[in-house]
Design a protein around this nucleic acid. Structure first.
Lengths: 241, 241
DNA sequence: AAGTGGTCTAGACCACGGC
DNA sequence: CCGTGGTCTAGACCACTTC
């Protein structure tokens, strides 16, 4: 090979990719716009066709771009993310509600069998247990009971939870990379305590969501059980054949 | 190029891919086993390195194979499909229950506003409406009301539904390629009719799932509203950050 | 006919892992 | 050290779409 001007370790195809990506991000290119052809990219960036091609292939893989044989390569419409894991605060913000929480109790527990089992930890593990009423626009929205392993999240306090969302704490203070959550959903009837906390009539149907949160290594991070007022919340999901 | 023995239109990299895939399917290769290296594949199949590489890259993309730089390429563990769209029959079979349905009514309706709206069709569209009680092991499990556009599914009858699952009918008789379904889930309380049909106590909490089925072109195919006995069913989903 | 993406070659050098 | 995957070249032919 003759030369490559700068060899700062980052592959040529990635550089080309980034150039195109940034032009999309900046709004210079919008969905439907044509991207330079493989040959143009190869010429402009001084690389071989295969390399330019690799860049476009990669972008297509990421759904950034669509390729139509015999026609060209075009900026893809922004893809909508289904089954996205969002925090309560994010959920409310998306709907235009103000969100906050009222902490009922925080305790350290151990031996709650159902919880440790779902958490995939020994039954003797000490867990930080928080009960919160989730409020949307000052109205009670859900009752949530959340468990976190003490050994992993030392220093967690009622105080820190008052001031930050759990997701923010996990991601920023503890450097957890949240990856996914498994949820089990069913319906239940409000008992006396829930009637009061959620201000619903006796026996009102509630949407119950049990959630196990996992980080990017596949380790369980937290378990939560939430009871949603069914008149104020429904869950959306997409399933694929 | 010197020659390629058979040029039956199918690309070399696909052929190589298929060879490897079939060896996995047959059980000759199991998860963790090493796949031939790029160089071996190139030599054996008489193609260039880039082509052999393409085959492996494609298999990696499909999560069939994992590549570890400096080490080799290995058969990936079978991936579990989350948020999978399955029919009631398939769901029950997976749990080891026998499933069948009792058809309550079949009618042709039009102008049910909520339904046509979710179905994304004009309010005047004639819809085939079926009410069924879903049974698992002879016990009532759910009440389902399903709507299908008459113009698209002419010839649909109570009789055909008695004998086949709706998914089977759509996929086999009507050649529909089911792609995904959007579901909205909440909780409701059993009314008098549901109490009888589902044999649950007065006001029992039920899991309500409204589902819109889409084909591979993104067109809505069917809308259904199902009420599940919450003591017998819960819904599982995975969400991604 | 000109341009596009899709496939393919026959080499090359690199970084990395395991022995 | 050798083999692996990762990157890359400088060409080539094909099928396809658009004009």
């Amino acid at each position: 090979m003759i030369k490559t001007e700068k060899q700062n370790g980052i592959p040529a195809y990635r550089r080309i990719q980034q150039v195109i990506q940034s032009r999309i991000d900046s709004g210079e290119l919008t969905p439907g716009d044509a991207v330079e052809s493989e040959r143009d990219l190869a010429r402009v960036h001084g690389v071989s066709l295969m390399t330019a091609r690799h860049a476009l292939a990669q972008l297509e893989l990421e759904s950034v771009v669509e390729r139509r044989p015999g026609v060209g390569t075009f900026v893809a419409p922004p893809r909508i993310h289904f089954n996205r894991l969002v925090s309560f605060s994010e959920q409310m913000a998306a709907r235009g509600f103000s969100a906050h929480s009222r902490i009922l109790t925080t305790r350290i527990v151990e031996g709650e069998y159902e919880v440790t089992a779902r958490h995939c930890v020994p039954a003797s593990t000490k867990l930080f247990k928080v009960e919160r009423v989730r409020m949307a626009d000052k109205q009670p929205f859900a009752l949530e009971i959340c468990y976190l392993a003490m050994n992993r999240f030392a220093g967690l306090s009622e105080d820190s939870l008052e001031r930050h969302s759990l997701f923010t704490l996990l991601e920023q203070k503890y450097g957890v990379q949240l990856a996914y959550a498994d949820e089990e959903v069913d319906a239940t009837a409000a008992d006396h305590r829930m009637e009061e906390l959620l201000t619903v009539p006796r026996g009102a149907p509630l949407l119950r969501i049990r959630q196990v949160l996992f980080d990017n290594t596949g380790s369980p991070i937290a378990y939560s059980l939430a009871l949603y007022r069914s008149d104020r919340h429904s869950l959306l999901t997409r399933r694929y054949r």
